Amino acid sequence: MVEHRPAWTDLRKLDQHHQKHCTGDAGECLKDVLGTDRLLSRNDYADLTDEVYDRAYIEYVAHERGEGEWWNPPAHYRVDGRSLKVVADLPNAIPRNYRSLHHVHYRGRHDPEEVSKPAFDQLVDYIQKRLLHRHARGDVTNCKLKVTKAFAEDLRDNPSTMRAAGYLTGKVVRAQQQLARAETNR
Results as ranks from 00 to 15, higher is better:
G27Q: 03
A152P: 07
E3N: 10
P118C: 05
D139F: 10
V140N: 02
G35M: 03
D50P: 08
V104C: 09
H17M: 14
D139G: 06
I127S: 04
P91G: 09
P73D: 13
H63M: 10
V147Q: 04
Q176E: 12
K13I: 12
H76N: 13
D54E: 08
E59L: 13
R5N: 11
T161Q: 14
E69V: 00
D80Y: 02
S100M: 05
Q177M: 11
R174D: 14
K149E: 15
G24L: 07
P95K: 01
V61E: 12
V147K: 03
A119M: 05
H76G: 08
Q178E: 15
S160C: 09
D25R: 05
A62G: 10
L101N: 03
A182K: 07
E114T: 08
T49H: 06
K149D: 15
R42C: 11
T23N: 04
L168R: 02
D32W: 00
H63E: 10
P159L: 09
R78F: 10
E64L: 12
V33M: 08
E64S: 13
F120A: 13
D44V: 08
G138A: 03
A93G: 04
L84C: 13
D25L: 14
Y77D: 02
G108H: 01
R42N: 03
F151P: 10
K146T: 11
G138D: 00
